[in-house]
Amino acid sequence: MMIQNSQELKEHEEMRSLVAELLYQLADDDFLIAYRGSEWLGLAPHIEEDVAFSSINQDTMGHAVMYYQLLEEIGEGKVDDLAHGRPSHYRKNAVLLELPNGPGHYRKEPEFDWAFTVVRHYFYTQAKKVKVDSLKDSSYKPLANVAVKINMELYYHLMHWKTWFHQLLSSNDEARRRMMAAIEKVCADFGGVLSLGPNGEQMAQHGLIEGEEMLMRRWTHEMESVFESLNLSFPESFGMKHGDGRKGEHTDHLVEATATLSEVYRIDPAAAW
C-alpha cells in the first residue's frame, strides 16, 4: 500500500505509528551525530578540515530537520520541541551516535579522538546511505521524497570520510593502531545503527523500508572491499554494548547532551528565539 501524504496516513493508525517510530530513529540519529560533530567546530586537526567537517554537520542537521518536519506533519509536535524538548529516554537514536567525541568537553580540555570520529562517521554514513537508498522506495511517499533529496548530499560525506579512513589506516603504525582501536570501539555499538527497533519487521512488511538483514547485507557488501583493500579483517560481530537506543535505552552522555543542546531553549520553550 502506497500512502501519498500525511492526511492519508492519519487514517491508518497502525501505519502512522510505524512511520513515526521510523522517523524518530532517522531524525534522532542525524541530530545526535550532527550535534557531536558540531562540538568539534574549531578543534579539528587541521583548519581546512574544520571548515569541511562543519559543512557535513550542517548538512546532517539539515537532514534531521527534514525528518522532524515529517513528524510535525503527522501530528507529533513542533520541530523545535521534538529536537530540544524530549528527555533522553524518549529519544530513539542509536547509542553509538550519542557517545562523546573523546575525553574532555567541547569547552574544556577537549581531548577528542579523531580516529573514533572518522570511523564512527564513516560507518554511520555508509549505513545512512544504505537506508536512504531503501527509503527512496518507501511506501510513505513524503519519506521517499525526502530520501531522494538527502541522498544527494551523501556522496560528498561518504567521499570525505572514506578518504580519511583510508589514509589514516595506510599511514604510520601509530595511526593504524589508533584506527584499529576505534574500529573496535565503534563495532561494539554499531549493531544499534542498522537496527530498526522492536517493530522493524512490521516496518519492512508495510514497505516503509527494507528489513534489517537486507540493510546489513548491503552495508557489509560495501564495506568488505574497503576492509580488504586495507588488509583488515572484517569485524565478526556488531553489538549494542551501551544499550539499544531504539528502545529508549541510553547512556548518561545523552542526558548531558540533551541538557546542553536545550539549555537556552528551556529558559522559555514558548518564546521565539
Binding site: 581546512e48 578540515e49 562543519s54 567521499m159 580519511w164 589514509q167
Partner: peptide, 20 residues
Amino acid sequence: SLLAPNHEIALVMAQENFMR
C-alpha cells in the same frame, strides 16, 4: 590556495573551503 598533506585530502577540502 589551501594546505593539505596530499592531493586526495586537498580535493576533499576544496569545495567547502572556497565554494560553500
